[in-house]
């Protein structure tokens, strides 16, 4: 697949673009319905709509941007492009999930330092916390 040359996709009806467009519309509307029209739990809604987002991004890259396309027959620019985009996606996921995790997971401990009185009053809770460590 990655070795496909640009020269093979000439003329004719732009089926690839049309399929990409229709699927993008379907994914957009389906994500909207999942988010606002169903009674799924928030966790499941987030998993599904982010899954759709990554799927639609892949559609754009493959159907519209020709990310796998080599600039020369037998070349490897397609592979560099794919590797670069995947690394970009990895960096993005680490930055976003990492930031959210650091900023929310840290709060539980900071809150305790900020409010030592409530911790002392709630003795059972404290021992429970220590037990888990």
């Amino acid at each position: 697949m990655a070795n496909k040359s640009a020269a093979t996709e000439h003329g004719g009806f732009p089926w690839k673009h049309l399929i990409g467009f229709v699927l993008s519309i379907v994914l957009t509307l389906f994500a909207l319905w999942i988010a606002l029209g169903t009674d799924l739990s928030v966790t499941w809604i987030l998993i599904i709509i982010f899954g759709f987002a990554f799927l639609q991004a892949a559609l754009q890259l493959l159907m519209f941007m020709h990310v796998t396309e080599n600039s020369r027959k037998g070349g490897f620019s397609g592979r560099i492009q794919i590797g670069n985009v995947l690394f970009g996606a990895f960096v993005a996921i680490v930055i976003v999930i990492g930031s959210v995790w650091v900023m929310s997971a840290g709060h539980a401990k900071h809150d305790k330092h900020d409010a030592p009185k409530t911790e002392n009053q709630d003795g059972s809770h404290e021992s429970e916390e220590h037990g888990s460590h």
């Binding site: 970009g88 996606a89 960096v91 993005a92 996921i93 930055i95 976003v96 990492g98 930031s99 959210v100």
Partner: peptide
């Protein structure tokens, strides 16, 4: 992608 990732974060 990295630029927008920082803004999303």
């Amino acid at each position: 992608i990295a630029l927008f990732a920082t803004l999303f974060a």
